[in-house]
């Protein structure tokens, strides 16, 4: 099975996990990694730099209509929703926040599920609200692979638990197991 993208959603407590994942992916990771993480509205700089520090693949905040490439990570810019359009392009939007969030993890996941269907891997990490639960359900409904970080390991478990309440998932994994999984792709 050839997968086309990995999408990761997280909020409070996810930064360390995302950092560890990025630091352990190979330079030649065969697909793009989409990151939709909640962040403070007015903290617009420093986040990409922090994630990039030890990452083996470049991490960028994408421009609107930018075409996705493998072996790169794309972080949803602060204060924009990030959609996946067909033809591998990202689209940004300043529409109203959804569940008090912009970027909304649900919207990013729903549109990615729609664009990549069974060729998408969706991962929900630690977080303090339920944004992302519905999005991961849509990944599953479209035939994609669904992974939730083990709530016992999460700094804040609201996001992972509400996801598990809403939908069955393929894997509940610790950070180490997520890393192993991704490295086998």
């Amino acid at each position: 099975m050839d997968y086309k993208a990995v999408i990761i959603g997280g909020s409070a407590g996810s930064f360390q996990v995302v950092t560890r994942i990025l630091n352990s992916l190979p330079k030649s990771f065969p697909m793009p990694v989409l990151l939709c993480l909640h962040r403070l509205k007015h903290v617009r700089s420093g986040f990409v730099e922090a994630l990039s520090l030890k990452s083996n693949i470049p991490v960028d905040e994408p421009y609107d209509k930018e075409q996705l490439k493998p072996s790169r990570a794309y972080l949803a810019p602060a204060n924009y929703h990030m959609y996946l359009e067909l033809a591998n392009r990202i689209a940004l939007s300043t529409e109203d926040a959804v569940n008090h969030s912009r970027p909304s993890i649900d919207l990013a996941f729903i549109t990615a599920a729609n664009a990549y269907r069974q060729k998408l891997i969706g991962i929900i990490l630690s977080g303090a609200n339920k944004d992302g639960a519905f999005g991961l359900k849509k990944v599953r409904d479209n035939g994609g692979v669904t992974i939730v970080q083990d709530p016992n390991e999460c700094e804040v478990r609201t996001m992972t638990q509400s996801t598990l309440q809403l939908t069955p998932v393929d894997h509940v994994l610790t950070t180490d197991q997520i890393i192993k999984f991704l490295n086998k792709l």
Partner: peptide, 9 residues
């Protein structure tokens, strides 16, 4: 128009 956003609107 960019489809995803317009559909949601």
């Amino acid at each position: 128009y960019s489809e995803k956003s317009l559909k949601r609107r």
